[in-house]
Design a binder for these strands. Structure first.
Lengths: 147, 147
DNA sequence: AAACAAACTTAGCTAAAACTAATATATTTT
DNA sequence: AAAATATATTAGTTTTAGCTAAGTTTGTTT
């Protein structure tokens, strides 16, 4: 087995993750749904989808529906998991909801698996030690008057 | 008034930050020093430097030395501060030294000022509550056998 | 001061990822 | 079923940031 699939660009990851999210219920999604979810024009989505199809991550036929291949589904769910770890973390340290998503999207494609693991461990730690968070928020409150 | 300086690309920030680091002692740096520090070929550095000069962030003359303008110095030091915040944070959550720098470089250009502020606050909190860190490392130790 | 080496610049190419405009296909309405 | 609408694709352009190759300028040696 070779690595093969691991060299997705940040954008490709964005697309794949979104395809995963959009098709998790229905089993499929479409170009216009994808493109509007990513705030991108349809031609951009088409092009990327064709590349993902070449990599056998999704099944795609012209004018048709987008369906994840087994590989794509696996990778997609990993990407989503990663996304959620970052997002939880970003929220916990105090970035407000309005910006949290955006910040998450910016970070998620850049950091390594190791870093994600660290963040995940940290989140679990916080979960089991909620008093730490209380302390932190108290501290934040005292040290953040007007922004 | 036009857009002014605030819309630097991630790369431009990389270059500016590095110029700042390299010239903080001597007051100047050079293309080849910059390009090798950034692992980039000299022509790439030249091109970017010309753009930064157009934005009045550095003083630059062909075949000459690179010197930060007042604006550039200010922005550069902010970028470096940001870098250090991220780096400290990354190390604190447990990313090992070997990867910390790389991870920092990947994150630093993506996140917003607000997020940086949150991270900074968190770092200060940790500083004033070292016991939290001790607890966390204990937890980490228990939940991280072999990677 | 001539020759050589090092540093730098220019020109031109590549790749990713976005865009618009034009065209093609599919679906829905009448 | 024809017309109208919605959805997709293709082709071609743009921007950013890298690269190589070739040519300039500067500096260092002899």
């Amino acid at each position: 087995m070779k690595k093969e699939n691991k060299s997705l660009t940040a954008s490709m990851e964005d697309y794949l993750e979104m395809i995963y999210r959009l098709s998790v219920d229905t089993g499929f999604t479409r170009i216009h749904e994808l493109s509007s979810a990513l705030n991108v024009r349809p031609p951009s989505a088409t092009k990327m989808v064709q590349r993902l199809a070449e990599l056998k991550l999704i099944k795609y036929e012209k004018y048709g529906v987008l369906i994840l291949e087994e590989n794509g589904k696996l990778l997609g769910s990993e990407l989503l998991k990663r996304h959620n770890i970052i997002e939880n973390f970003i929220k916990i340290i105090g970035v407000d909801e309005t910006n949290a998503l955006e910040e998450t999207e910016k970070i998620e494609h850049t950091v390594s698996t190791k870093t994600i693991e660290c963040i995940d461990t940290f989140l679990h730690f916080i979960e089991e030690n909620p008093d730490v968070l209380t302390q932190y928020y108290q501290y934040r409150f005292e040290h953040t008057s007007e922004q």
